[in-house]
Computed example of a mutant assay.
Amino acid sequence: MASLEKLQGTELVDCARANAKQGIQTAARQCGYGDNLNEFARDLRKACEDMNLQVKELSELITDQDMMLEIGEGEIVAPDTEGVL
């Protein structure tokens, strides 16, 4: 659901990260910036700088963990119960 207000700070970074795979237009809309991509990019850059994140492009917010969740690779290996190792 798109934000009714322009998000700022960590909320902006979190929302942008959650929508980064869908592209800048979708991320801007979801973060409350509508079609104002320039303002979205400027505010996102500032929010990232304030958090000491070195991000030049929206795609850089997508983490390896996000990619693994999408790919679904890997298998969890664990005992059936705590007593069986």
Rank of each mutant, 00 (worst) to 15 (best):
M1P: 07
S3A: 15
L4E: 15
L4H: 08
K6W: 04
K6S: 08
L7G: 01
L7C: 04
Q8E: 15
Q8Y: 10
Q8G: 02
G9Y: 03
E11H: 09
E11Q: 14
V13N: 00
V13D: 00
V13W: 03
A16L: 01
N19P: 00
A20N: 05
Q22S: 12
Q22V: 09
G23Q: 03
G23M: 04
Q25W: 04
Q25L: 08
Q25R: 13
T26C: 08
A27Q: 01
A27R: 00
A28R: 00
R29M: 14
R29A: 09
Q30H: 07
C31F: 03
G32K: 04
G32M: 03
Y33P: 00
G34E: 07
G34F: 02
G34L: 05
N36R: 07
L37H: 09
N38E: 14
N38D: 13
E39R: 15
E39K: 12
A41M: 10
A41E: 08
R42C: 11
R42H: 13
R42N: 12
D43G: 04
L44Y: 00
L44P: 00
L44A: 03
R45N: 11
K46D: 07
A47N: 07
C48I: 09
D50A: 07
N52G: 04
N52S: 14
N52T: 08
L53C: 07
Q54Y: 10
Q54C: 09
K56Q: 10
E57G: 06
L58Q: 01
S59H: 06
E60I: 04
L61F: 05
I62R: 07
T63R: 12
T63L: 14
T63D: 11
D64A: 09
D66C: 06
D66F: 01
M68P: 02
G72W: 01
G72F: 04
E75L: 11
I76D: 12
A78V: 12
P79K: 06
D80L: 15
D80V: 15
T81G: 04
E82I: 07
G83K: 14
V84S: 15
V84W: 11
L85T: 15
L85H: 13
